[in-house]
């Protein structure tokens, strides 16, 4: 920092909506193109990073489009920005520098995402980013095991594509889990050899398996049990393998336990309510081991995370 002005890695930018399509049930896919300055900042975004979008100025969709379970709280005001990860980031070089397009998959589950439903091509949004630290890829990596739980899937879709593009030698498999088939933010199809696969991962050339708690699609049970079963039946080299997990906290705690049982390294993408996303409000605390025995400290999900080494995290809920 010099004279009170920092070297800037993030900022407030605008993005224009290219499309906003319903994928299935409550899930939507939002495609954005960043302004030229923002594009420069987002050019080297890695999977697991995120942004904060100001949705406070958007209006409600017509009442008939409001899901029944959200009608009671639909009119609640939106004040704070909302954090979103990316399911894909594409950079195209142009004469005036890079042009970055972002893809966000979101679930309509509250007053803010309800308003997102109304976004249409040409609308302009204010966003802050890129934020946080993404997944780390080590040079020794040969096998990437992705564990996605429900709405935790988008950054792993980004990671799957990122690994194919930049680390084509890494074998990647994604296990996508949810409570029930309709809670999966994906299109499923029958694969050539392995039964049910996720179309979005298949398109990327990434193997996938599906697990649902109620057995409505794929493996019946927790996705971490599905991964455990797979690991038990495959010969893996721990030093060349990494688990990447994103989903509800009990699932992440389950992934951490799984990794410990098999002696694997594991990165988990955590989630907390955050007011700012830039380290000001201190609300998104994650308890981590301090290194010394029995001593813990709080790190910030927005600044120090959202991706953490699973061995360091003290999970609030058990698997």
């Amino acid at each position: 920092m010099e004279n009170g002005v920092a070297v800037r890695h993030k900022g407030v930018f605008t993005a224009e909506v290219l499309s906003n399509q319903q994928i299935r049930e409550c899930y939507y896919r939002l495609n954005l193109v960043l302004d030229p300055i923002g594009s420069r900042f987002f050019e080297h975004v890695v999977p697991g990073q995120f942004l904060e979008i100001d949705l406070s100025g958007l209006s409600l969709p017509p009442e008939r489009h409001i899901p029944a379970e959200l009608r009671d709280i639909a009119a609640r005001q939106v004040l704070l920005r909302r954090p979103f990860s990316f399911s894909d980031v594409v950079t195209t070089p142009t004469q005036d520098g890079p042009c970055v397009k972002l893809e966000i998959v979101y679930c309509v589950l509250g007053p803010a995402t309800l308003r997102m439903m109304t976004l249409k091509s040409g609308d302009v949004l204010s966003l802050i980013g890129p934020l946080g630290n993404g997944f780390k890829i080590f040079q020794t990596l040969k096998l990437a095991v992705l564990i996605a739980g429900g709405m935790g899937a988008p950054p792993l879709l980004h990671l799957g594509g990122y690994l194919r593009r930049h680390f084509p030698a890494v074998e990647t498999i994604c296990f996508a889990g949810a409570r029930s088939c309709e809670d999966l933010p994906f299109t499923l199809k029958i694969g050539n050899l392995t039964g049910l696969v996720v179309d979005e991962f298949d398109t990327l050339g990434v193997a996938s398996q599906v697990a649902t708690d109620d057995g409505s699609a794929g493996f019946k049970g927790f996705v971490t049990d599905c991964v455990r079963h797979w690991l038990e039946n495959h010969t893996i080299k721990p030093e060349e393998t990494m688990i990447f997990a994103c989903g509800p906290e009990p699932m992440l705690a389950g992934a951490a336990r799984l990794a410990a049982d098999f002696g694997l390294a594991c990165q988990v993408s955590m989630e907390r309510m955050m007011a700012c996303g830039i380290g000001l409000c201190q609300s998104c605390a994650i308890e981590v081991n301090k290194g010394k025995a029995d001593e813990t400290e709080y790190k910030l999900c927005c600044k120090d995370g959202p991706v953490f080494d699973s061995r360091n995290v003290i999970f609030q809920v058990q698997p």
């Binding site: 955050m274 007011a275 605390a285």
Partner: peptide, 9 residues
């Protein structure tokens, strides 16, 4: 500081 959640809108 306190455990989370630390904020709510």
């Amino acid at each position: 500081g306190n455990p989370t959640p630390r904020i709510v809108e």
